[in-house]
């Protein structure tokens, strides 16, 4: 089967975890790891695994654009703004894992279909990836007036970027809950818990639905279906407790255990981002390959 070539920009924890996940993909071929520090663990591992490595950042890739059609950007929001422009100019599809939000928000099981030809998409936040599917699962049965999510992650898995700009997390996630989840109003809260051993990422979704009568059975079926759909690309995603129905209020408890590829299993918050990125790229690849087939036939 034909594979679509991809490259990773950013050889840090996220980039390295992506590399390991991509190695398993049946439709994506990871060819290149792009970093700025030749001694970084990510670039060293990439060399060991036999991938092309570029250690002078985006410029090195611009000289060899044939290495990939899809690029994952796991650098920083600031760097991504520059990368996005340059990669667009050479016609690459870009998955943005930073909070830059240059492109539209994508949560794979909710709106990937709308963005199969996008040149740049953004994955919101880990809290958004974990909770927006559930908000949408409820909203598609009964309109959601208000959705509020609480993401609790272990202190160890919250990097300096998240910490220095914590408002970005709450504000971006809230926007995603509204725009993609469908809630009329969204709110997000993030809590860091320093317990040792580190806790697994947990997300609680509190929702108020429209109307007095709540169709509990249909909502539950929709939530369970969504759980399976997310599990198809994030195996450690699960509903922890029976959701609580109280009048027009619904509370859903989620746990996200990481796959433990490069990052430890407690950091489900990072795993769900890399897993969602691979999922989006796979959908893009399928779409590209189907177009090629149609053209060949034509």
């Amino acid at each position: 089967m034909n594979k679509i070539k991809v490259a990773i920009l950013g050889s840090g924890n996220i980039g390295t975890d992506l590399m390991i996940k991509l190695d398993r993909s049946e439709i994506l071929e990871i060819t290149t790891m792009i970093g700025i520090d030749p001694n970084s663990d990510g670039l060293q591992r990439a060399r060991e695994l036999g991938y092309e490595t570029i250690d002078n950042g985006i410029n090195g890739f611009l000289e060899r654009p044939e290495l990939a059609d899809i690029v994952f950007d796991a650098t920083s929001a600031k760097a991504h703004i520059r990368h996005a422009k340059l990669l667009k100019q050479i016609g690459k599809q870009v998955l943005d894992l930073t909070p830059a939000a240059v492109g539209p928000f994508v949560v794979p099981p909710v709106n990937i279909e709308e963005h199969l030809n996008a040149d740049n998409i953004n994955l919101i936040t880990c809290g958004g990836q974990a909770t927006i599917p559930i908000v949408h699962a409820i909203d598609r049965i009964q309109l959601v007036d208000y959705a509020e999510i609480v993401a609790t992650i272990s202190s160890k898995s919250a990097g300096p970027g998240t910490r220095a700009n914590i408002d970005e997390f709450t504000q971006t996630t809230a926007r995603g809950i509204e725009k993609i989840g469908g809630a009329k109003k969204g709110k997000a809260i993030i809590i860091l818990n320093p317990a040792e051993p580190p806790i697994i990422m947990r997300d609680t979704i509190h929702v108020l639905v429209e109307g007095k009568y709540v169709d509990q059975d249909r909502i539950m079926a929709s939530i369970r279906e969504m759980e399976k759909e997310v599990q198809s690309y994030v195996p450690g995603y699960k509903i922890r407790q029976e959701p609580v129905f109280d009048g027009n209020r619904i509370t859903v408890f989620i746990e996200v255990e990481g796959a433990g590829d490069y990052l430890p299993t407690y950091s489900g918050n990072l795993d769900i981002m890399t897993a969602a990125a691979v999922k989006v790229a796979e959908e893009w690849a399928k779409h590209k390959l189907s177009k090629v087939t149609v053209e060949e036939r034509g």
Binding site: V150, I191, N193, P194, A195, R202, R240, Q241, E242, T251
Partner: peptide, 18 residues
């Protein structure tokens, strides 16, 4: 015992259910 911190009120129902 679980060293739950301030703000984790959602854990109350979770723990009670368990």
């Amino acid at each position: 015992r679980q060293k739950i911190v301030g703000g984790q009120e959602d854990m109350i129902v979770d723990v009670a259910a368990d």
